[in-house]
Design a protein around this nucleic acid. Structure first.
Length: 700
DNA sequence: GAGCACTGC
């Protein structure tokens, strides 16, 4: 039957099959059906119903992250307003996956499907599938210790073993037990002592009347260490899901390469001259190395025969301004092969399309932490087998690829299976503060998957005690400790804010702490060293780096304010600010981050009832406040002009980028202490073993 | 007068 409109003429309607939106729709349905996980939907649901804890080992491309939550939701796990939570180690993953799943479900983002990350929450009361960062779920647990809104929590990428993931695993284990005890309480089937232990540990507040359903836990990991997770969760069932990855040929060198940078260069040109089309991804250790390899490639390109394919070089590392990072994602022009020189950022954080060849020297620059001295170092070390696998996998995303490992096969066998979890190589003060706030008093007794050393725990407890966050018997102090635990900051910075409210300089300290918490503000391109230096001089304060950062922040705020007063909308004002950043050699991404932190922390501080006042021109007051709060990082000048850190007796030097580098005051407080060492397995680069301290502020 | 892998709340 043909319907007619009001004028009586026939109205025709296409079946819509050719509409771009419908084509996209069909494509999505097709793609979902072809995922390896699609064929095991029923089996997975059964396993989840049968087991309270399930380990899912899913290879790259299995579809586990996007599909499993949808299966569970359709399988009834969102009933009674319950939420399925999926944690990710990285913000960008939470956002992109949530957007994709919302599209697959044909819902608007923030309705049934949403994401929640720091500074950006798209969820609503109707959200049933919630993607989030693991750190954010930890923060949520402070407000809701039993995570009562969730029916299922899926911890994705658990093999990465970030600090947040590790703490979360221990916490979830306790929450699960407490909720199952809660559900069985009336049946009186649980020994009282056991129930009390868990209740005391997990929940700060007594549970509200309604009974809680048990919590389902799903741990998703890449193939290598499923056994470790299974053992940790009492022999939990592990399910394997096939991936969809193209084969990658692995090639090793015949001999040990004495210089991996040179070996990488030779390999780039060998691939370029002898192999078929496809881009090359080279893993290097840092900015300096990338820049020097870039220069060397440009020199050697001149010697290529005229007839050969062109070669374009694109660097990518995290501190590179975003617009320059984008170049790595642009397809190469026809007749050109792209060589991407990347740090570890390309291992997991970003996926660059078009890669067919990977060159892997087998090294990484990684942070290590000395629990005794409190000193951080960046050390170039061999990667783990898991990392080598992850790197080679980057060549097989779109078709068969090749990975050239610049070391011998016998060396590969010597690599450790997986990287040491971060929790064993970082300062634990923050972790301990959060656990204490969650009601875990016995840190040594907490069920870590891998327990940090006794020294590490003891030193961090000591630090928290000295900051006044803990009482004599190592319980969270009130109000200082609980206030510090509420702030998402390094405990020293949290303490500084509390002290600053007493010194009437909280306004300045809020800015300092936000600026110090973000990444480096100053961007210094090699070819514009002098210009960058001159620009920085405008902000320099003789009172130290903290106040220098304050003046950068205030100048940027003034620029934004002016632009808004002139009637600019937010977008335009932001553009104006970015232009200001470029002119002043400020990294706009870092500044944006600092502004976000500032507004978030300001909110917390106001809620706590602290008074936000400015010390005006009284810099002495601000410096006194720094001394009172950063005392753990104080250092005194010695005869030879170096400094001795009071807490650890380490000899440190002021970093040349500091405004106090020349002034050399008698006493300083530093905001970061780090040492630089070089170890090369292939390349003997023992260049210098000095210790550089970044200094900051003179104290009277 | 020197350099900073990468995340996250």
């Amino acid at each position: 039957m043909v319907s007619k409109n009001s004028e009586g003429t026939p109205k025709w309607k296409s079946n819509g099959n050719n509409h771009p939106q419908n084509l996209r729709r069909q494509l999505i349905v097709q793609q979902r059906k072809s995922l390896p996980i699609a064929s095991v939907e029923k089996r997975l649901l059964e396993e989840v119903r049968k087991h309270d804890i399930l380990i899912i080992v899913g290879e790259t491309g299995s579809g586990k992250t996007t599909q499993l939550p949808q299966f569970l939701c359709n399988g009834g796990f969102c009933r009674d307003g319950k939420v399925i939570g999926i944690t990710q180690p990285r913000r960008v993953a939470a956002v992109t996956v949530a957007k994709r799943v919302a599209e697959e479900c044909e819902v608007e983002l923030g309705q049934k499907v949403g994401y929640s990350i720091r500074f950006d929450d798209t969820t609503s009361a109707t959200t049933r599938i919630k993607y989030m960062t693991d750190g954010l779920l930890l923060r949520e647990a402070l407000l809701d210790p039993l995570l009562s809104r969730y029916s299922v929590v899926i911890v994705d990428e658990a093999h990465e073993r970030t600090v947040h993931t590790d703490v979360l695993l221990g916490l979830l284990k306790g929450v699960q037990l407490a909720r199952s005890l809660e559900g069985r309480k009336d049946a009186n089937s649980v020994p009282l002592k056991e129930a009390n232990n868990v209740q005391n540990r997990v929940s700060l507040k007594p549970c509200q009347g309604s009974k809680l359903s048990p919590l389902k836990l799903i741990i998703m990991s890449a193939s290598l260490d499923a056994r470790g997770f299974s053992e940790y969760f009492g022999g939990a069932k592990a399910v394997h899901i096939q991936g969809r990855q193209y084969p990658v040929d692995i090639l090793y060198t015949h001999h040990a390469e004495p210089d991996y940078v040179d070996a990488a260069l030779i390999t780039i040109f060998q691939i370029h001259m002898n192999e078929g089309p496809g881009d090359i991804l080279v893993f290097l250790t840092g900015q300096e190395e990338i820049e020097s390899v870039e220069k060397l490639i440009h020199e050697r390109v001149q010697k290529l025969p005229e007839s050969s394919l062109r070669l374009s070089v694109v660097p990518i590392f995290s501190s590179l301004p975003s617009e320059k990072q984008m170049l790595a994602f642009k397809p190469a022009l026809s007749g050109t092969r792209k060589v991407i020189l990347a740090t570890n950022i390309a291992e997991t954080s970003v996926t660059i399309p078009g890669i067919k060849y990977v060159i892997d020297p087998g090294l990484v620059k990684a942070r290590s932490y000395n629990h005794r001295t409190g000193m951080e170092s960046l050390i170039i070390t061999p990667i783990s087998k898991a990392q080598a696998l992850q790197r080679s996998g980057r060549a097989g995303r779109e078709g068969p690829g090749k990975c050239f490992r610049l070391y011998q096969e016998s060396e590969f066998a010597k690599l450790v299976d997986s990287t040491t979890p971060e929790i064993k190589r970082c300062n634990l003060a923050n972790v301990i503060l959060q656990l204490k706030a969650l009601g875990v008093d016995d840190i040594m007794g907490f069920d870590f998957m891998e327990k940090p050393s006794r020294t590490a725990i003891a030193n961090s407890l000591e630090q928290l005690f000295l900051l006044g966050a803990l009482t004599d018997d190592y319980k969270l102090s009130d109000p200082v400790g609980s206030q510090m635990a509420r702030l998402p900051l390094d405990p020293i910075y949290s303490k500084a804010l509390i002290v600053a409210s007493e010194f009437n300089c909280l306004e300045e300290m809020l800015i300092s702490v936000a600026m110090l918490s973000a990444e480096s503000m100053f961007y210094t391109p090699r070819d514009k060293l002098d210009e960058a230096r001159d620009a920085r001089k405008c902000f320099t304060s003789v009172d130290g780096d903290h106040l220098t950062l304050v003046s950068v922040y205030r100048a940027s705020a003034e620029c934004l304010e002016k632009s808004r007063l002139a009637g600019s909308k937010d977008k335009k004002a932001e553009k104006t600010l970015n232009k200001w950043c470029r002119e002043n050699f400020i990294n706009s991404r870092s500044l944006k981050h600092a502004r976000d932190i500032h507004s978030q922390i300001r909110g917390h501080v106001e809620q706590m009832g602290l008074h936000i006042t400015s010390c005006g021109d009284d810099m002495l007051q601000f410096r006194r406040c720094l001394a009172a709060s950063f005392f753990l990082n104080a250092a005194l000048k010695q005869h030879d002009g170096s400094y001795r850190a009071l807490a650890s007796s380490q000899t440190v030097q002021i970093h040349p980028s500091s405004v106090l580098f020349r002034a050399k005051p008698e006493c300083i407080v530093v905001y970061q202490m780090s040492s630089i060492l070089y170890f090369g397995i292939k390349r003997v680069v023992i260049s210098h073993l000095g210790k550089g301290g970044k200094k900051n502020q003179q104290i009277k």
